[in-house]
C-alpha cells in the first residue's frame, strides 16, 4: 500500500458514495447511465470472486464487499426504487459492442488460462470502458449536473492515481502487471476530455454543457 493507491481507492469510494447520495437525496437518478452502472457491477462481480478463494487483508476484503454492495445498491435504486426518474431514452449505448470484444480479448490476452484468471482479466478490460455509456449519455443530452461531474471526476481520478501507484510499485517492488497497466491507461485516457471540461468549467461554477 502506498499513498497513490490509498488516495485512488478513497477517490473510488468517494465517487460511489456521492452517486448513491445524489440519487438518495434528490430521489432521482436523472442523468445517470444505468448501463454503465450495470457494467460496473459486472466488473466487481467478476473481479472479486477471489473473496471466496483467498484472503489478502481486512482492508482488501472490506473494500471489495463495499464496492459490490454499493454497485448493486445503485442498480436497485435506479431500476426499482426510483425507476420513474431513470432517463432511459438517453441511455442507449449498445453495451454488446463493449462486452463482446472485452470477452474475446480476455480469452486471448490473460496471465493464465484459468476460469478465475480470465474473469479477472475480463473485469479489468471491462472496467476500462464501462464509463462509455455514461459519457455517451452526457454527450447526447449535452449537459451534466455538477454532482454528476464530481462523480465522474472522482471515478476518473481513481484510475489515474493507480497509474502513479504502478509506477511507484515498479520502482520499489519490481511489481509490473501489463494487463492492469494498459487497461488503466486506456481507462484514464477516456476521461481526459472530461477532465479538461471539468477543470475549465465545473470548477469555475459553470454547468457542464
Amino acid at each position: 500500500m502506498n499513498i497513490f493507491r490509498l488516495i485512488g481507492d478513497l477517490s473510488h469510494l468517494f465517487a460511489i458514495l456521492i452517486l448513491l447520495l445524489k440519487i438518495w437525496k434528490t430521489r432521482s437518478c436523472a442523468g445517470i447511465s444505468g448501463r454503465s452502472q450495470i457494467l460496473f457491477a459486472l466488473v466487481f462481480a467478476t473481479r472479486y470472486l477471489d473473496l471466496f478463494t483467498h484472503f489478502i487483508s481486512l482492508y482488501n476484503t472490506l473494500m471489495k464487499i463495499f464496492y459490490l454492495c454499493s454497485s448493486f445498491g445503485t442498480i436497485y435504486l435506479m431500476y426499482v426504487k426510483f425507476k420513474a426518474t431513470y432517463d432511459r431514452n438517453h441511455d442507449t449505448f449498445r453495451v454488446e459492442f463493449l462486452l463482446i470484444p472485452v470477452a474475446i480479448l480476455s480469452l486471448i490476452f490473460n496471465h493464465e488460462f484459468d476460469v478465475l484468471e480470465i474473469l479477472w482479466t475480463f473485469s479489468i478490460y471491462l472496467e476500462s470502458v464501462a464509463i462509455l455509456p455514461q459519457l455517451f449519455m452526457v454527450s447526447k443530452t449535452g449537459e451534466a449536473e455538477s454532482i454528476t461531474s464530481h462523480y465522474l471526476f472522482a471515478l476518473g481520478a481513481y484510475r489515474g492515481l493507480y497509474i502513479l501507484n504502478w509506477i511507484y510499485r515498479y520502482y520499489t517492488e519490481g511489481f509490473f502487471d501489463l494487463i492492469a497497466v494498459i487497461a488503466g491507461i486506456v481507462q484514464t485516457v477516456l476521461y481526459c476530455d472530461f477532465f479538461y471540461l471539468y477543470i475549465t468549467k465545473v470548477l469555475k461554477g459553470k454547468r457542464l454543457t
Binding site: I56, S57, N60, Y67, H111, Y162
Partner: peptide, 10 residues
C-alpha cells in the same frame, strides 16, 4: 508464479 496472480489491488 502463484504469487504473481495474487491480485492484491482493487
Amino acid at each position: 508464479k502463484e504469487n504473481d496472480l495474487d491480485h492484491d489491488e482493487l
